[in-house]
């Protein structure tokens, strides 16, 4: 099962990014193979619909769960439509590593 964690960098020691549509990177973690990969969010600076575009990327990646700080209404609608679970983490100072450990 693939999970996306929004990330501010492209390594596992990067900070968790609390933004979904405007996150710098998406960390894709597969808990069956324990593999992680990072995808740059090309829509992070778009003037509108960044959340929708990010949600489209999630569907294309075939992930079942997304972890971020919050989700806007348009992203939420799209993710719900494709049955992708949204997990919200509000705390500060969280690293990508910490979240991967919890998922493994």
């Amino acid at each position: 099962m693939k999970t996306v964690i929004t990330s501010s960098g492209k390594t596992t020691d990067s900070d968790f990014d609390k933004r979904f549509g405007r996150a710098d990177f998406f960390c894709v973690f597969d808990n069956e193979t324990n593999e992680t990969s990072f995808i740059e969010n090309i829509h992070k600076d778009s003037s509108n619909a960044a959340g929708t575009k990010a949600a489209e990327v999630m569907v294309e990646l075939g992930v079942s769960k997304v972890i971020s700080g919050d989700f806007g209404p348009k992203a939420k609608t799209m993710l719900e439509k494709f049955d992708i679970q949204m997990v919200i983490i509000q705390g500060d100072g969280v690293k990508i590593n910490d979240l991967i450990k919890k998922l493994s």
């Binding site: 619909a49 929708t52 294309e60 799209m78």
Partner: peptide
């Protein structure tokens, strides 16, 4: 120019956000 169209080829999905 307004990111109003959502297209997801793998699931053959296309829609327009009328507000954009």
């Amino acid at each position: 120019e307004f990111n109003a169209i959502s297209l997801i080829p793998s699931v053959k999905y296309i829609s327009v956000d009328t507000s954009l």
